[in-house]
Design a protein around this nucleic acid. Structure first.
Lengths: 102, 102
DNA sequence: TTTATATATGCTAATATACGCATATAAGCA
DNA sequence: TGCTTATATGCGTATATTAGCATATATAAA
């Protein structure tokens, strides 16, 4: 899909775009989103797989949920997280692909 | 162009990707890169167009040059900056496009 | 060489961020 | 109810970031 090249960068769009990039600008959040590419995981599963503290994972998931990068569903006491913004996932995979072809 | 979905996220790639997103995660740098989409501008021109202080622009250009997001060329006392990473420009324009279609 | 213009940079203050500890909350089960 | 497991969150700390001032550097022109 081809886009226009001269999109007006309003204050609102600027805020939104920078907010998303800022969220992607942290290694921990990238690792979490990358893990969530294929399927959902619980907080503890994420912490174990990525060798992070539970509170760290919870904090980051919370910040990503706030801007709708991830969503959650409860199953008993367990809460499963998955990504919630296909555009952002596209940005991430493209960036990783670029990094892989350097 | 379609990419693999399961690219290994090595430490090196993680560092690289997060560095790029971090650079894009600031409104001032986004505005500068957005201005540089079509053509090169001098430091002062950027400062005037975006109503930023010269030192602010210079600092941000310096940080973006360090990670090769922009390049510069001298003409007398004037230094013209332009973007230097088409992948990053693609990421930025795609993100802005997404923000425009919400 | 002196002056003017353009850009870069050292320093600092204000602010934001990430993380981990300790604890709170919530759900399920005995 | 009391206990266990899973997750969330308040708080403090260490660190990073941004921007602006003042000044340094570089080039050109007089």
């Amino acid at each position: 899909m081809k886009y226009d090249t001269h999109l007006e960068l309003t204050e609102e769009r600027l805020t939104h775009v920078s907010q998303i990039f800022k969220a992607l600008g942290d290694p921990t959040r990238i690792r979490i989103l990358h893990l969530l590419l294929d399927k959902e995981y619980s907080v503890n599963e994420i912490a174990e797989k990525l060798e992070l503290h539970q509170s760290t994972v919870s904090h980051q998931l919370s910040s990503m949920k706030k801007i709708r990068l991830v969503k959650s569903r409860r199953e008993g006491t367990t809460i499963y997280y998955s990504h919630d913004d296909k555009h952002v996932i596209d940005l991430l995979t493209e960036a990783i692909n670029h990094a892989c072809h350097n």
